[in-house]
Design a protein around this nucleic acid. Sequence first.
DNA 1: CTGAAAGCGCTTACAG
DNA 2: CTGAAAGCGCTTACAG
Lengths: 349, 349
Amino acid sequence: MPRKSSPTQIRSTAEFARHVGLARSTVSRVLNGQPGLKQKTINRVLRAMSETGFSRNAFALHLKGKRTASVGICMEGLLRVPAVLKLATLQKRLREHHYTSLIEVLDPDGTSRAVAHFLSMRVEAVIFIGYFAEGEIADRIRELTRLGVPHVVIDHPGVPGANTVTLDRRGAMEKVTRHLIGLGHTSFGLLGISESAKSTWDRLHGIGDALASHQMTLERNTLSFDHLHSRESNFEFGRSLAKSFATLPTRPTAYMTLNDEIGAGALRGFLESGLRVPRDVSVTGFNNQDICLVSTPQLTSVDQQIDQTIEVAMTMLLAQINQAGGGGPMVELIQPQLVVRESTGAVAS
Amino acid sequence: MPRKSSPTQIRSTAEFARHVGLARSTVSRVLNGQPGLKQKTINRVLRAMSETGFSRNAFALHLKGKRTASVGICMEGLLRVPAVLKLATLQKRLREHHYTSLIEVLDPDGTSRAVAHFLSMRVEAVIFIGYFAEGEIADRIRELTRLGVPHVVIDHPGVPGANTVTLDRRGAMEKVTRHLIGLGHTSFGLLGISESAKSTWDRLHGIGDALASHQMTLERNTLSFDHLHSRESNFEFGRSLAKSFATLPTRPTAYMTLNDEIGAGALRGFLESGLRVPRDVSVTGFNNQDICLVSTPQLTSVDQQIDQTIEVAMTMLLAQINQAGGGGPMVELIQPQLVVRESTGAVAS
DNA sequence: CTGAAAGCGCTTACAG
DNA sequence: CTGAAAGCGCTTACAG
C-alpha cells in the first residue's frame, strides 16, 4: 500500500496562515518580502513553507495585477540543431532578466493556436524562432502589434512590420560563391537551394550577386536536380543528388548545399561515385555544425553566430518593453562567418 | 509615425460584453460553449472576439477552478540531439491529449526553482528528461509525491520512488560487447564510459556482464584514458583519446564510446594516426544519430527507440492521472537496438 | 502583528 | 436573454 499523502494539502494562503497561526495578511507580507516584520515571524513562515510544500497560486497572484514576467516562444517544429541552440541560449538570457518562458513547438499550422494560448496567459512578449507559413506569421505580427504586445522574429526575414533578426543569408551565400569563384570554379550545383522554396530565395540572390560581378548568371552557371529526389532525410537527399550529378558527362565543379546534413550526404554520394573531394569537386555546407568535422574531408561551412543573434533579439525585446522603440519595425542582419575546411579546393586543371 | 493601437484594449469579459452589447453571463456562456443560445448571439460574440483580439484571462479562468491542463517538463540543459527529439515528441503527444506544456531548460542546479515554478502554475504533472544531480532529483520526486503531483522521469534511472522510463543502457552495452566479442575482440578501450561518471555505471556493468560470460573482466580486458583529456567538445575528446590509444605499442582492438560524437571523433583520431577502421581497430558509438552515416567508415551504434520511450512515458503519466497506479513506482526499461555498420569488423589476424 | 474589507477577471447558479 | 450575487486565491490599504 502506498502511503497516503499525509499532511493534508494546503491550497491557499488562508489555510496556510491558519496552519502557521498567523494572519493572512502577515503571511502575504512575508511572501512579498515587505518590511516591518520580526525575523522570527519570517522564519516561522519560511519553515512552514518548506515543511508543507505550500506555494502560492500563481493564477491568483497575477490576477491581482502582479505582472506575469513571462515571454512566449514559438519554435518551428522542425527542430534542427541551430534552432535548438537558439532556444536554449534565449531561455537562459530571458531567465537572467527574470522572465519565465512559455515554449510551444509548433505543428505547421500552429502559430494561431500557440499565440492565442500565450495571449490568454498574458505573456509580455512573443518570440518566433524559425521559418513559418508566410500568411500565418504575418497575421500573428499584425495581431500582436494591434494588441501592443512586443515581439521578435528570429530567422524569418521579410514579414511586414515585424521586428526581425536574421542571418544575412544572402551575404553568406555571396561569400561562399566568391570563395569558390576565387578557387577557379565557374559552374555550380545547387542542392536544396532553389526557387521553389521561398525560404531559400535570399540565398539564391546572394549566389546571383557574386556570379553577376564575374559576368556569370544563375541561369547559365548553376544547375539543380532538387526536383528529382524526395527529401525524407537531409543526408540521403544530399547523397542521392550527388549521385545524380556524378552521372553527368560534364558536371559542375562546385556544389553549394542548404545545410550541413545535405552537404555531408553529398560528400558521401560523390565519394561513392568515385569522385574525389576536393580534387574533382568542391562541396560547401551551411550552419557549421559538429557534423562538418566528422565527414571526410571536413566540410567547409557557414557559421550562424548564434550568440550574437540572440543578443540582438534580447536587445530588441528590451527596447520594446522599455518603450524605446522609436517608430517603425527594427530589422537587423547578422553577419555570418565563412569557415573554410577541406571540402573546397582549386578546380582541377 | 506608427499608428496607435486603435481599438482601445479590451481586458475583461465585462468590458467585452459592454462592447458587444450583451450581458457578461451571456458572453461567458458563449465562450464556454453552453447550450440554449441563439446562433445569432453566438456569431455576434465570435465576430467581436476576432475583431478585438480579446482573449479571456487564463489566470482568472483557472482561479475559478477550471483545471490548468498543463504539464511541466524539466529538460537537462545539455541539449543533446536525442533529448530534443524526446522533448518534441512528448510535447506533441501531450497536445494530442489536450495538455499544454511548460518547459524549463535547466541550469545544473535548477530543478528546485523550475519545479517550484511549475507547482505555483498548478501543473497536473511534471516530467524530467535527462540526467540530473542525484540528490536534487531525489528531493524533487519526494516533494512531488508528497504533494500528490504525478511525475515521470525519463533517462535518469535509480531515483528512489520515481516512475522511470530509461533505455536499458546496461543491456545495450552488453549487446555491443557481445557483438565485438563475436568478432574476436578480447581487449577493449572505453571512451567516456568510466567509474568516475555515475551516469555511465550501468553501461559499465553491461560491458562487465558480457565479458564475464567469456571469462573476461573489466579490470583485465578494458582500458580507459578518460582522465587524460579535457572534454569541451565530445568530438575533440574522442579524437584526442583515440590518438592517445594509437601511441601504445600494444593496444585494444575495439573501442566503445559514450556517444556518437565521441565515436566519430575517435574514428577521426585513429585515421589521423594511420590506423585503419575496422581493419586495425573497431569503434562503436551510441544513440544512432545522423552523424553515424556521415563518418567514414559509417559508425556502428545503438538506437534509443525514442518513440517507444515517449509512448511508455505517456502511459505512465495517464495511469497516474487516472489514479490507475496500483501502488509502488513504475519502472520500465526500453530495449535498445544495435545497428551494425562499417566501423566494426573482425579482429586482424 | 491582527482582522475585516475591497477588488483583480472570471463562472455559475438564480430570479426575472 | 439580463442582472445581481457569490466565490476562486491572492494583495493592499486601513483601523485597531
